[in-house]
């Protein structure tokens, strides 16, 4: 069951702050999704192998060859905050 507590927990794992309205909205949406999954669960899947990949392919590799990286300027262009060549983030340890 999707209840308010679960919504709060999932939001906190994702570091999201939700308004009351958003909590309500996600609770309804997630409940809908899960009830659809419940429907699927009623099917008999005894002889069906779990499938995580839609393609029937495997072993795709690249060689260990250098490619140019993106420039520091471009990389940092998206940063909400930066200092010199670093991304700046809220302090993570006390």
């Amino acid at each position: 069951m999707i209840d308010k507590k679960l919504i709060e927990y999932v939001a906190s794992l994702s570091r999201l702050e939700l308004t009351r309205d958003e909590e309500e909205m996600f609770m309804n949406q997630l409940t809908d999704i899960l009830s659809y999954i419940e429907k699927l669960r009623k099917l008999n899947t005894e002889d069906v192998k779990p499938m995580a990949y839609p393609l029937n392919k495997s072993n795709v590799f690249r060689e260990d060859k250098l490619c140019p990286s993106t420039s520091k300027e471009e990389i940092l262009a998206n940063a909400p905050a930066k200092i010199d060549a670093f991304f700046k983030v809220p302090k993570v340890i006390e």
Binding site: K65, C67, S69, K72, D84, A85, F86
Partner: peptide, 20 residues
């Protein structure tokens, strides 16, 4: 020589955010 999923260098001790 390169990272696990892209061709960026794994060299240690270079200028920050230049191998991304």
């Amino acid at each position: 020589l390169t990272k696990l999923f892209c061709g960026c260098s794994t060299k240690f001790g270079v200028e920050p955010n230049t191998q991304v």
